[in-house]
């Protein structure tokens, strides 16, 4: 019954990944050395297959001598799967519990850390607009990757995501219809550019760069799952430094900061949606 697979499977060793990430750090200044290796390994395996390579050494040679290939590599190994209003229950809590607090402040700053292709940036802008707060928001969206940042500014999203986007939006106690915010063009959803008029897009690498502004709310959801705990600790400190006292930090549904070194400087505001408040400097 058992027949061996036609093509040999690629089996990457941890030491090979260490060599790869060290070499990339030295040559390009991108630091993947403290990424969670379980996921990183899957990404690198995918890159090998996509390019018809069979070993990490072959990949390394190509990376070191071909900067354009490296740019594509960064795009491929970083994770850019996101959706509009991912986890609708989170957006509902944001609408009813967090935004009313921000609304008491004359102006407020929001950071989408590792914003990827911008689905959450647009989602947030729609929410703010519906609550009459968009004009007073100063918003930053950052990512390690220039290509996805450009996409985020285009506001063009594939029509195949329309149903999911609408389903999610409908569960956030919306005050309008999703279709009020976009028009269909060539099978894509093209969102209203005024939504991101207040958004500054900026390159920022959580693994290397420092804080650059102070915020009332930071969204960093399902980003740190790709980091090991050492890097997670660094990023928690960076995010802490980037928050005003009383500012909020939103993580992904299965991320937690209770174990991190500076856990005592935050308190949980909503356990199931993983929203935390900075309570100590």
């Amino acid at each position: 019954m058992y027949s061996p697979a036609s093509e040999p499977d690629i089996d990457i060793q941890l030491q090979e990944l260490e060599k790869l990430t060290e070499a990339i750090l030295t040559k390009y200044g991108y630091d993947f050395t403290n990424y969670a290796m379980s996921s990183f390994k899957r990404r690198v395996t995918m890159v090998l297959k996509k390019n018809g390579l069979s070993t990490v050494d072959q990949l390394l040679q190509k990376l070191l001598y071909d900067p354009a290939f490296f740019d594509q590599f960064v795009l491929d190994v970083t994770v850019n799967t996101t959706e509009m209003f991912r986890d609708p229950s989170f957006w509902k809590v944001l609408r009813h519990q967090i935004l009313p607090i921000l609304n008491t402040r004359p102006e407020f700053n929001i950071w989408h850390a590792a914003a990827s292709t911008g689905e959450e940036v647009v989602s947030m802008a729609m929410l703010l607009k519906e609550e009459g707060m968009l004009d007073r928001a100063k918003i930053y969206a950052t990512d390690i990757n220039h290509v996805v940042l450009k996409k985020a500014q285009n506001l063009v999203y594939p029509g195949r995501n329309k149903d999911l986007s609408e389903q999610n939006y409908a569960q956030t106690d919306p005050k309008g219809k999703l279709e009020d915010y976009y028009q269909m063009a060539d099978g894509d959803m093209v969102f209203d550019p005024t939504l991101i008029a207040n958004v500054k897009f900026k390159h920022h690498d959580l693994a290397i760069d420092h804080h650059f502004f102070k915020f009332d709310l930071i969204l960093c959801r399902n980003v740190m799952i790709y980091f090991n705990q050492k890097l997670q600790n660094r990023v928690f400190e960076l995010l802490h430094n980037s928050l005003f006292l009383g500012g909020f930090l939103a993580l992904g549904a299965k991320e937690s900061l209770i174990w991190c070194k500076i856990a005592d400087k935050f308190e949980s505001v909503n356990d199931s949606e993983k929203i935390y408040k900075k309570i100590k400097l």
């Binding site: 379980s38 899957r42 399902n222 790709y226 090991n228 549904a253």
Partner: peptide, 21 residues
């Protein structure tokens, strides 16, 4: 494994999650 996440073993005693494809 939680909804809408991949569950991985990061090492012999720790989990990791991913939202990849």
């Amino acid at each position: 494994a939680p909804a809408n996440y991949h569950l991985l073993m990061e090492d012999a005693t720790h989990f990791a999650l991913a939202t990849t494809e």
